[in-house]
Amino acid sequence: MVRVPLSPQERLRGERFGLLLRQARGQRSMVEVAAAAGVSAETLRKIETGRAPTPAFFTVAALARALHVSLDDLAATCAEAAEGGDEQAMSA
């Protein structure tokens, strides 16, 4: 199976998602959050750094639950940044 390359908007959305996770994690360690979500620390690292810009739904849901973040809020914020190409949203 061949993967279609991601568009710039999809990459931006993935970067925004990673930033949101890092902010929500706060002072908690990556290992602690990953364990609470039932994912590997390497998976969380890849998502947070934008190297995995399109994580699986259940991975996103588990991370949101572990971080006490609404899936609706995550989706809305990531979509806004990607659709508008808003560079300022990335620094928020």
Rank of each mutant, 00 (worst) to 15 (best):
T59R: 12
A24T: 00
S7D: 03
C78K: 04
G38A: 01
R65Q: 15
G18P: 07
L20T: 07
L21M: 09
R3G: 09
A64G: 05
A66S: 08
P5F: 08
A34Q: 09
T43L: 10
V4F: 03
R13H: 06
L63N: 05
S29L: 04
R11K: 15
A52N: 00
A79I: 06
R28D: 08
R25T: 10
M90P: 03
A75Q: 00
A34L: 08
R28T: 12
R65L: 12
F17E: 01
A52R: 03
P55H: 13
A62T: 03
A35V: 06
F17H: 01
G18R: 11
L44R: 11
C78D: 01
R16N: 01
G50T: 00
R11V: 05
S40M: 07
A89Y: 01
A56F: 12
G50R: 04
R28H: 13
I47M: 11
R45E: 03
G18C: 13
T54Q: 15
H68Y: 00
F58G: 00
P8Q: 14
V39H: 07
R65H: 03
P55L: 14
A35E: 03
A56Q: 14
T77N: 11
D73Y: 15
L44H: 07
H68F: 00
L6N: 15
E42F: 01
G84S: 14
L63M: 01
L6M: 15
A81Q: 02
A92D: 13
L44Q: 07
I47L: 13
A64I: 06
A61G: 05
L74W: 02
A89W: 09
A36Y: 02
F58D: 10
A52G: 02
A35I: 06
V31N: 11
A35S: 06
A52E: 10
P53F: 15
E48C: 07
C78Q: 00
A34R: 10
A92E: 13
A24G: 04
S40V: 13
I47R: 12
A41K: 14
V60E: 11
L44S: 05
R51C: 11
E15D: 10
A56E: 09
K46P: 09
V39C: 08
A64H: 04
A92Y: 02
G18I: 05
P8T: 12
V4Q: 10
R22I: 08
V33R: 12
F58H: 08
V2M: 00
A92M: 03
I47N: 11
G85K: 07
L21N: 08
H68G: 04
H68W: 02
A92Q: 05
V4W: 00
K46G: 15
A36V: 06
E83T: 14
A61V: 07
A37H: 09
Q88T: 15
A89P: 04
R13E: 12
R51Q: 13
Q9M: 03
L19Q: 05
S7P: 03
A64M: 04
E48R: 13
A56T: 07
R13L: 11
E32C: 05
L20A: 14
R28K: 04
L20V: 13
A92W: 05
A35M: 06
T49F: 03
A56M: 08
S40L: 12
G84I: 11
S70L: 08
M1N: 02
E10G: 09
E15V: 13
A41F: 12
M30D: 01
S7T: 13
E48M: 09
A64N: 06
A37F: 10
A52P: 01
